[in-house]
Simulated assay, not measured.
Amino acid sequence: MDSKSLIINISTALFQKKGYLGVGLNEILKACNLSKGSLYHHFPNGKEELLIACLHSLNEAITTDMEEIFQHYPSTVTATQAMIKKLIEQFERDGMITGYTFSSIVSEIGSLSEPVRYACALSFTKIEGIFSNKLVTDGFSEETARSIALMMTAAIEGSIMLCLTQQTSEPLKIVSQVLPNLLRVL
Rank of each mutant, 00 (worst) to 15 (best):
L25A: 06
L25C: 04
N26D: 13
N26R: 14
L29G: 09
K30L: 09
K30I: 13
A31F: 00
A31W: 00
L34T: 09
S35Y: 02
S35N: 02
K36L: 07
K36S: 12
G37F: 06
S38A: 14
L39S: 10
L39I: 07
Y40N: 08
Y40S: 08
Y40P: 13
H41N: 11
H41P: 10
H42C: 05
F43Q: 04
F43M: 04
G46D: 01
E48M: 13
E49D: 10
E49W: 04
L50R: 05
L51G: 00
L51P: 00
I52L: 13
A53M: 09
L55C: 01
L55R: 00
L55F: 02
S57Y: 12
S57A: 15
L58Y: 05
E60M: 09
E60G: 08
A61C: 03
T63Y: 01
D65M: 01
D65V: 00
M66E: 03
M66N: 05
M66L: 13
M66S: 05
E67L: 07
Q71S: 11
Y73W: 01
Y73R: 01
S75M: 02
T76I: 11
V77A: 09
A79W: 11
Q81H: 01
Q81F: 03
M83K: 12
I84R: 09
K86S: 13
L87T: 04
I88G: 11
E89I: 08
E89L: 10
Q90N: 12
G95D: 13
M96N: 15
M96R: 15
I97M: 04
I97A: 06
T98D: 14
G99N: 06
G99L: 07
